[in-house]
Amino acid sequence: MLEIKDLTVEIGGRKILNKVNLKVEQGSTTVLFGPNGAGKSALLMTLMGFSGYDIVSGQILFKGEDITHLSVNERAERGLGIMTQRPPNLTGVKLKDLVKVISNDHSFDTDAASKKLDMERFMDRDVNVGFSGGEIKRSELLQLSAQNPCLYLLDEPESGVDLVSIEEIGTTIDELLSSRSKCSVDHYKRGNSALIITHTGQVLDYVEPDVGYILCNGVVMCRGNPREMLKEIKAHGYQECIKCKQAIL
């Protein structure tokens, strides 16, 4: 589904990602761990094509196609969808109008989806303006469900969210990943694929992960079983991982 090859990225001339190699298989959920400032968010933003993330070298392949230099909307059209941590306020743009535009080319039951995510009373509000942490996440999920991408790029879906909302957000993500999209193929485990950043691992109470990566200082440290990685990180932090990588190098 997604293949990142030797990707090096700079922000304002400063190297943020260094020769990153990472794969997300079709229908699989890949989790990205790493300490603050490791470059996790930068990787997701780069994958979506946001400006300010300068690709110095390397390649991003999506469904076999080189998308390294495509525009943001061209990537969205091909099936990438993102939930960022701090989406901008869109003053004057009503959530219902945005959802309508996003779901333009396929049937989408806005009423049912907004009800399910408890977003009905936000439909006439300006997108993200005055939304709480949980409301932003639910609004993002509503937009993503209208968009129906093949690969979900989710940046810390549980951050800034209260415990009740985490359950709602977690189960919604699980349902979205299990649903069908234009790239769904029958024999795969799930309809859709995901690359999820998580600090706490809370989202993994609701979404079954397949593969884990650890990113430190812009470098992929290791790839492995995500549940074991999480256990290890919880017990020893990221230091063990960094040491281990240094030993290999």
Binding site: M48, G49, F50, S51, S71, V72, N73, R75, A76, E77, L80, G81, I82, T84, P87, P88, L90, L98, V101, I102, Q143, Q147
Partner: peptide
């Protein structure tokens, strides 16, 4: 703000 434009583009809207 470029960030606003790209936010919408990431949802599939043209620039």
């Amino acid at each position: 703000a470029r960030e606003q434009v790209e936010y919408l583009m990431a949802r599939g809207l043209s620039e």
